[in-house]
Design a protein around this nucleic acid. Structure first.
Lengths: 215, 215
DNA sequence: GTGTGTGAAATTCTTCACAGCG
DNA sequence: CGCTGTGAAGAATTTCACACAC
């Protein structure tokens, strides 16, 4: 079987979320058409994506939600919970932590870190908290695989290096700087709301320019 | 000139952020190599991206930061500020608002909305606040182009329709549901931290499977 | 020598079109 | 019939390789 393309992996993750949502609502089946509509993608594309899961169940009238979900979980490795941590417990970090949705079935947030030691003492969070200089040792000891960075600014790169020193495998960076991986063994995803706003603005602009050229 | 590919637009937005950051630090020039390293992309790719800006300045030893930034702004429409709003003023929404970085040079957040009217009265935020049923009329009146959704759950789709009714042009959805655009005139970006964690987990898993197969 | 610019090649990804199944 | 599965065609994107400029 050929390797699964990155865009397909990304869509499968979203499909998985969607399946969770629909399963909670009690829905049992759905079609590639419905998935496509919900994700803003053609149904062809969805069906093609699903072929990478090996056999996807011979239905005929759509996919069985529970089964499909299990197959994605199996292929993509969502069958066991992974350990994660959060670095930066300012407003942003605590907001994300308090959002109960974050305690997903797939991840356990087992540690929090912050540079400000006083803050650590006042927070009412029921996960162990540590100062950031403990990152390498705690990450290594607890075998933490994933980290979420919610730092106010500049410090992100510096912290990322501590995480990597501890052997972290992936980082989702929510801090307003572009984080780069010094090492190709560590995967980094940068999320930046401003960049997303810019992306959308660019789409408006380019769409408009095109229309002007056509007219 | 051919249309700019979407992936290129996305990278140009990130490059723009990077240039802002470096400009603030007083740096004057940088090479495609440096940009590529910071973004985790090949320098070829960066150079190719930059050719879509028309002439990018005949340098020879890298790009002049200020000039390149202006060219991106010009091509992608970052020359004027766009009006934006935020819907959902729970912990997440207020955290993002209080993050001063969000008051970017490119966007003005001129309104906030929340369903909970009592909450609106207690918040100390210096932008006008409205209940969500006012969304269509306020968005239309203020000519708001962009919206950030930070809602706890289910309500997102419903709110999105109110925004569209008001004539919004783009939505960045931070709520934990996949939002779909009922209308192709409205661009929607879904950001979901769990999905990003899943994506990274999938990469680990697939990388490992591949290694196992090879061994 | 270091670094950009770019057509062409290579690759990756998406779309199509249609066979096959319930 | 509606819906899935899939090889083949097509399109979009990335990578390459080398000419040119400082």
């Amino acid at each position: 079987m050929p390797a699964i393309p990155k865009p397909t992996i990304s869509r499968l993750c979203k499909i998985y979320s969607l399946l969770e949502e629909l399963e909670d609502k009690g829905q049992l089946k759905l079609s590639s058409n419905e998935i496509g509509r919900r994700l803003g993608v053609g149904s062809h594309n969805i069906r093609k994506d699903l072929t990478y899961l090996g056999e996807t169940g011979t239905t005929g009238s759509g996919y069985e939600i529970k089964k499909l979900k299990d197959q994605i979980a199996e292929s993509l490795g969502f069958t066991r919970k992974r350990k994660a941590c959060i670095v930066g417990l300012g407003k942003m970090g605590t907001a994300i932590l308090s959002n109960e949705m974050f305690f997903s079935k797939n991840f356990d947030i087992i540690a929090g870190f912050d540079t400000n030691i006083n803050r650590l003492e006042t927070l009412k969070i029921d996960i162990p908290l540590y100062p950031t200089y403990d990152i390498p040792v705690v990450v290594k000891r607890e075998k933490i695989e994933l980290a979420l960075l919610t730092l106010p600014g500049e410090t992100a790169q510096n912290i990322a290096e501590k995480l990597i020193e501890g052997g972290i495998k992936g980082i989702v960076n929510f801090s307003p700087v572009v984080l780069s991986s010094p090492d190709d063994k560590v995967y980094i995803t940068n999320i930046d709301i401003i960049d997303e706003f810019r992306f959308l603005s660019a789409l408006f602009t380019l769409e408009k320019k095109e229309a002007d050229n056509a007219g």
